[in-house]
Design a protein around this nucleic acid. Sequence first.
DNA 1: TTAGATTTTGAACAATGTTCAAAATTTGCG
DNA 2: CGCAAATTTTGAACATTGTTCAAAATCTAA
Lengths: 202, 202
Amino acid sequence: MGVAERKAKEKEELRNHILAAAMRLFAEKGVDNVTIRNIADAAEYSVGTVYVYFKDKSAILHALHTQGFSDLRSRFQILTYVADPMERLKASGHVYVQFAVENPHMYQLMFSVADPIDHVECAPDGKWHEGQSTFNFLRDMVQACVDAGHFSGHQPVALAYLIWGAVHGICSLSIMKRASVTELNNPVGEGLTEFLRMLDRL
Amino acid sequence: MGVAERKAKEKEELRNHILAAAMRLFAEKGVDNVTIRNIADAAEYSVGTVYVYFKDKSAILHALHTQGFSDLRSRFQILTYVADPMERLKASGHVYVQFAVENPHMYQLMFSVADPIDHVECAPDGKWHEGQSTFNFLRDMVQACVDAGHFSGHQPVALAYLIWGAVHGICSLSIMKRASVTELNNPVGEGLTEFLRMLDRL
DNA sequence: TTAGATTTTGAACAATGTTCAAAATTTGCG
DNA sequence: CGCAAATTTTGAACATTGTTCAAAATCTAA
């Protein structure tokens, strides 16, 4: 059945081709300014073909956001080589913030757009694996810090959520253009510095 | 000129009438699910009339978000009576979180939707007064804490931004349905507890 | 009363997500 | 190769959105 195989591969290739075109447009123009017709044009296929490979626009946005989490996780992967858990945790803060600042549109899609989660909720599984595995990585790092004697008096999982929230918050406010009121030159960087200084004392 | 006065009052009343209808729909269905036609229907006027009183949809969303900030600030007002600055700061965290949890759609509009800021940027002034005055309130509270001997080694404005970001982050992740992966019963409440515990030690 | 000003209307337009019958292409077989 | 069936691709068509604007309806003032 060599033909069936080749066909399957071609289908997958075209799907990726459309996705790549969507990603290009999207990184440049942001979620709100990409249309299905844009994507079809960029991929050099018709609108109908896009709908053969993706159920609807939410499916495309979900696929893109999945790539974003994949990218973020691969950046975290490097941190495995930082032995001290507290140093690893702080370094991951820098990695996270850098990812957000470098990919604001992707960051917005990953955390401030309803579509990807709506798509997940309608799936048979219903679980948000992208977010789950990323949070687990953070939770385990925090637990390693606790095991190393840090964060006494804190509840590890809740603390992990707070850490995520804090770093997310300073990125999100900046990306959503709410940080200008601080009149800081680099609110994200300075905010992170303050947070890491706090963590260091625990 | 009694007539001109009455006319002016009637214009303002109709504007508020439309806004009130928009607010009702919006609090119930969220930003993404309210259309101009919905608003016109709810206000019992035609689509065209809505456009007489508001330049475009962004103007409506901006007006709504302004009411949200007005509500939030009036909640903060009560805290003026908490004498100890550290207690005041912590109480304001609870007030902020409660506001967000009680008004998720409004919170989303205030911090995770581009429209209000776009509208501000196109205005003659160009400054985001709603956010500015709210941040100033927080900045002054943090400064009062510094004056009372807290937060040594921290930069007040950057710290204020971090505090805002942290509390915003735990609210935002929850409201945008990204917090389910923590498997915490009450991620917002537990996250805030962790944060206030951290602040207490500084 | 009535002419002019003001307010309100809703049909019409462009842009969007989505569908689907038909056209174009590819496959499998005699 | 030739050709029918299966597959893939197409783009016209539909519903819904934000938005505009000439006309209708209403109100004002003399």
